[in-house]
Each structure stands twice: as structure tokens, then as C-alpha cells.
Design a protein around this nucleic acid. Structure first.
Length: 339
DNA sequence: CGTATTTGACCGGCGC
DNA sequence: GCGCCGGTCAAATACG
């Protein structure tokens, strides 16, 4: 979708307005200073600078407000589409499994979990702890975070490798019933205790799209020194920041951008859906029937969404690091230009 | 030779 | 209880 094209998440957009007025007006001030002689009072310059700064901050604030509005709109749109897709899949038993007569309970549980989180219920973790289902073989399985990442690759590429900055060990491969392409099973091999698993399979509709399903949370940071890190989509996402900030990413909560095309992340535990220019994602073509979005149009629900987004941003170490770098950079720049 | 990957066998849940 | 199916194990193999 047009999400990332509209909103530059690298903070570069935020940062740039800080520089331009610092550089250009400085020259103007100097030229004024020279042109008008030295009888201009420095206090007046300072006041002018302050006014300029105030205007700049106001403009920046306005810009940020607009960005937030756009983000909210895009977020609502995407979430509505996801909800439609999920409800449709639930009602029809899943279009991806049209040939299958039976649907495994695990998968329907996952779908329920996704829809549940999409509907904004606060208590998914606690409710899954106290699941009233009589048969509950693996509580931790239900508790695990599950997210899907759609990655566009070359259709001829059969490696089933999704580079995400972590180190994975393949422990199995299966051909599933609903998809002729094999599904690969990976475990996080960076830390022996890391419980995260990953399943990678090509999309039925579009063979050039890899669907990576992550289960669990990493209990370590990214494997920055090894493996595919240097070319990982996430690190590329980080490197996109002009601030030069290197940091770890919140596990399983990042939109990944593949080298060959757009990706779509479905966040199943933080009510967050990110997307970019993809309109042909596996879920995308099923967005047909409008409706089934009574709840998300309610103002209090939208307020809740905004709070969730703000909360996600403030909890995101990447965002915090970028923000800190931007602020400190601004201070340093101010100190430098003041001298 | 050590490590990673492959792949057939096995296990357990689920539906009938 | 049986068969189907997804997920996992582990021996064999490949690779650096």
C-alpha cells in the first residue's frame, strides 16, 4: 500500500527541517549582519532566531500531526481490510484451503487469535492462560506470539530463506496438503534457549511471495555479527535511517522490506498492521465485502487504536533510539551553530 | 572434522 | 479406533 510512501518512518523527515533553517538562515543572518553594518543589536538577532525557531517548531509540529493523521487513516484502512479478510476466512473456512475438507484446530485457533487481537481485546494473554477449553495440550503454544511476514522473492528462488536478521536452523521440510510448495521449519539457533520458530512457505496464489510465520518471542537481541544480518531486511530498514543509529529490533514486530519487493507484516499480538505498496499480497485480493467493522468505527475504539499506536511507538527501542539520536543531534547542532 | 542441511520416519492431535 | 495431517526428530549427507 502507499503507507511508507506517504510516511517516512526513518525520522529523516522530522530531522531535515531542523537542519535547513539552521544552515540557510544562518547565512542570511550573517549577510544581513554584514550588509547592514555592525550596528544591529545581537539581542534582536537572538529574538529573530527564537521566532524563527518557534515558527519552525510549529511547522514541524503541524507536519507531525498530519503524518499522524495519515498514519491513523492508513492504519484503520489496513486493519479494516485485515478484519474483513479474517472474518471472511472464518466464515468460509478459508479460501486458501478450498480443497481441504478438514481444517486443523490449531490453524483455526490461530485465526481466532488474530481476529481477537484485531478486535482490540486487552486480555488475550490472560484469557489464553485461563482458556476454558477442556483440551488444552499446550498452554504455551496458545500464548506464543504469532506473526506473519509476506516477503516477495524471485519465483525461481527455491531456497525458502527469509532474511530477517536472526540466525535460523532448518529442522524440517514438509509438503502440506493445501499448498503444493514445501513448507520449511526453522528454529532460532542464535540462543539455545530461544523458543522462536519460523515456518516459511510460498503463497498459493503468488509463488513469488514467501509467507513466513513466526511463533514466539526472541529472548535475545538480533544476531548482529553473524549470518544474513548484513543484508537482512530489518537491518536495511534500520540503515535507512539517516541518523546512523544501530539498534536491535523488537522481535517479530517489524515490517520487513525485502530487496525485491514489498512485504506485509500482520501483527497478531500488538494490534498493529503495517504495509507498504503491496496490493497483491495473499490477503489483498480477498478484500471484497465491506462491512463487519462496526466496532472499529466507534470513536472510543479509534481512541484506543491511537493509544495503542502511541504505546507501540514509545515501547519500541528502535523508535526510542532514533528519537534520542535525533534530539541529541539537534542539541549538538545547536551548540555547534551557536559558537 | 565440525557444522548445517536434507529427508524419511515417527509422533500426536483431530475428525470421522 | 483408524486414518489423515502437520510438526518434529535424527540419521545421512553436503559443505567449508
Amino acid at each position: 500500500m502507499e503507507f511508507t510512501s506517504l510516511v517516512d518512518t526513518s525520522l529523516d523527515l522530522n530531522f531535515r527541517p531542523l537542519r535547513v533553517p539552521d544552515e540557510v538562515p544562518k547565512q542570511e543572518v550573517e549577510s544581513n549582519f554584514i550588509g547592514l553594518g555592525r550596528d544591529l543589536m545581537p539581542v534582536k538577532d537572538e529574538a529573530g532566531d527564537l521566532l524563527e525557531e518557534l515558527n519552525r517548531v510549529s511547522a514541524e509540529n503541524k507536519k507531525l500531526t498530519e503524518m499522524l493523521t495519515v498514519m491513523c487513516q492508513n492504519y484503520n484502512t489496513l486493519r479494516n481490510q485485515l478484519t474483513e479478510y479474517m472474518s471472511k476466512q472464518n466464515s468460509s473456512g478459508g479460501e486458501d484451503h478450498s480443497t481441504g475438507s478438514k481444517k486443523r484446530k490449531v490453524e483455526s485457533n490461530n485465526n481466532n487469535e488474530i481476529v481477537k487481537s484485531v478486535q482490540g481485546l486487552h486480555s488475550e494473554s490472560s484469557s489464553s492462560d485461563e482458556d476454558t477449553s477442556p483440551k488444552k495440550p499446550r498452554e504455551e503454544h496458545i500464548k506464543t506470539k504469532i506473526s506473519r511476514v509476506y516477503t516477495r522473492t524471485e519465483a525461481s528462488d527455491t531456497s525458502l530463506i527469509v532474511k530477517d536478521g536472526y540466525q535460523w536452523r532448518k529442522y524440517g521440510q514438509k509438503v502440506t496438503r493445501d499448498n503444493p510448495s514445501p513448507r520449511a521449519y526453522f528454529k532460532c539457533s542464535f540462543a539455545p534457549t530461544c523458543p522462536v520458530k519460523k515456518k516459511v512457505q510460498r503463497s498459493v496464489e503468488d509463488q513469488s511471495i514467501l509467507v513466513a510465520t513466526y511463533e514466539g518471542e526472541h529472548n535475545h537481541s538480533k544476531t548482529d555479527a553473524t549470518g544474513p544480518v548484513t543484508t537482512s531486511p530489518s537491518s536495511r530498514l534500520n540503515a535507512k535511517s539517516s541518523l546512523g543509529v544501530t539498534h536491535s529490533i523488537v522481535p517479530c514486530s517489524t515490517t520487513l522490506i525485502n530487496s525485491t519487493g514489498p512485504t506485509l507484516t500482520l501483527q497478531t499480538d500488538q494490534k498493529k498492521v503495517n504495509s507498504n505498496t503491496s496490493t497483491s499480497s495473499p490477503s489483498g485480493h480477498k478484500r471484497k465485502s465491506p462491512g463487519s467493522d462496526h466496532q472499529q468505527n466507534r470513536p472510543e475504539f479509534q481512541q484506543f487504536l491511537i493509544e495503542q499506536m502511541a504505546s507501540s511507538l514509545t515501547k519500541d527501542p528502535s523508535f526510542q533510539a532514533a528519537l534520542a539520536a535525533a534530539i541529541s543531534g539537534k542539541f549538538l547542532q545547536n551548540n555547534h551553530t551557536d559558537k
